[in-house]
Amino acid sequence: MTDQERLLVEPVNEVTVITFRDKKILDEAVIQEVGDALFDLVDKQYKTKLLLNFENVEYLSSAALGKLITLNKRVKEENGELKLCNIISEIYEVFRITKLNRLFEIYDDMEQALRRFKRRES
C-alpha cells in the first residue's frame, strides 16, 4: 500500500484501488493535490485500471467533478478503465443531478466494482 497525504493507493491484482482520505473535496488546493496525485498514477506510474473509493468523502464540489472528468478522459486515452464505488447517497445525488452517473461507472461497493474490470488477455 502506498501512503500519500491525500490518497491511499493499494494494488488489487491488476487494479489500482485509490481511497480518498479527505472528507471534503471542495477546496481548490485539495482538488489540485488530489488531481495531481491521480494523474501521476496514470502518467508516471502507468496505472490505467483505477478504482476510486469514495467511502470517506462527504462533500464534493463541481470543480472536483471536473477533475474526475478530465481523469476519465486521460484513462480512456490509454484504453484503461476508471470506476467509482462507495459513494454516499448525498454525493451520488450530485452525480445524478449533473447526469455524470451516465458518464462514470459507479458501483455500490468495492467487490462489485472489482469484478467488473476486464481481465488481461492471455
Binding site: S62, A63, L65, G66, T70, I97, T98, L100
Partner: peptide, 18 residues
C-alpha cells in the same frame, strides 16, 4: 445546460446547476 450530451464531458459549468 451542462447535462446536454455534447457538454457532459466538459470539466466546468456545473456550479449554478448544483
Amino acid at each position: 445546460d451542462p447535462t446536454a450530451p455534447d457538454r457532459l464531458e466538459l470539466p466546468s459549468g456545473r456550479g449554478v446547476l448544483l
